[in-house]
């Protein structure tokens, strides 16, 4: 591994100043489960590594039924799935947090880190999109907020500018009669990268029979995680039935433009989008009724 400097600031202001004034390349270190590997394998480079786990705002986890969830960008996955409030309210987030690497990885890896790695296959990113989350970004010139679906711009790339840092992810309250689910397809049962992944969120009408609102997002089938807007819009007003889910799956496939690689062929990945959309919608509806 190439030599680099290390800083562990305890405030946001200090962190953004370090990042903004760094000579050469500065990288933010959260759980390190991607960054350390990338530096070791020289896939990424760093002259300065800024450990942000001592900054209170990045380690904060704050949920209230009215306000929703504010999730510090460096909060490790285990704190999410070990939180009973979140298990009840954001099941898709729990699904995703549970399968980012193995148990050891989840002791360190964070949702913010997953987002900033900006892999097309990032397990939690589609869920942020499906749940309508926003990203809070701090920088030398102040804060800004962007919808999660706009954050990633290309494989491994995102809209963070030099000196900027992802502080937190804000989720709206889940709402009445809503449910969500994330599923990925992997050849093994654990420790794998999604061949394709789908996250679905639905809100049902008062009777619990018709879809009032839906958001479907896809992983590993495009250069960035994608919001399946046509499928999501089409679902509104449709009965929550197997036929509906299957048709939504067909519409979601239209957003997929996957590549063929060691993880699967383009044809197979596109097919999986249909299967996973159908399955996650069914599970989300079941949870909404639950």
């Amino acid at each position: 591994m190439r030599s680099f400097e290390y800083e562990a600031p305890s405030s946001l202001a200090e962190a953004t100043a370090l990042l903004a004034s760094a000579k050469g390349t500065a990288r933010v270190l959260a759980g390190g489960t991607d960054l350390v590997v990338q530096l070791r394998e020289r896939l990424r480079d760093a002259d300065l590594v800024v450990d942000v786990k001592h900054i209170p705002e990045l380690m904060e986890l704050n949920y209230s039924p009215g306000m929703g969830l504010r999730l510090g960008a460096s909060v490790p996955c285990y704190r999410i799935y070990e939180n009973p409030d979140l298990v009840a309210t954001y099941p898709a987030l729990i699904d995703a947090a549970h399968i980012v690497g193995g148990w050891q990885i989840q002791s360190r890896a964070s949702i913010g880190g997953n987002l900033c790695t900006s892999s097309p296959a990032g397990d939690t990113i589609t869920t942020l999109i499906a749940l309508g989350a926003h990203c809070v970004i701090a920088g030398p010139h102040g804060n800004r907020e962007v919808p999660a679906q706009e954050f990633c711009t290309a494989p491994g790339k995102n809209l963070l500018q030099k000196g900027e840092i992802l502080v937190a992810i804000v989720f709206p309250g889940p709402g009445q009669k809503s449910g969500s689910a994330y599923e990925r397809f992997i050849p093994r049962n654990e420790m794998d990268i999604a061949v394709a992944g789908v996250s679905s969120w639905v809100r049902l009408d008062a009777a619990g029979k018709t879809i009032a609102e839906a958001r479907v997002a896809l992983a590993a089938v495009a250069p960035t995680p994608r919001f399946a807007s046509e499928a999501s819009q089409w679902l509104v007003g449709k009965p929550a039935t197997a036929e509906t889910f299957a048709h939504a799956g067909e519409l979601a496939k239209k957003v997929a433009s996957p590549i063929s690689d060691m993880r699967g062929t383009a044809e197979y990945r596109t097919h999986l989008v249909g299967v996973l959309t159908k399955r996650t919608l069914a599970k989300a509806v079941e949870r909404a009724c639950g």
Binding site: Y6, G31, V36, Q104, S107
Partner: peptide, 27 residues
Amino acid sequence: CNNGNCGACTVMLNGRPVNSCLVLGVE
């Protein structure tokens, strides 16, 4: 494996199991 995929380097860090190959010593 030195990249978090085999678990042979697992140690407890502040009460949680981690892959010590993915933690910096300075941390």
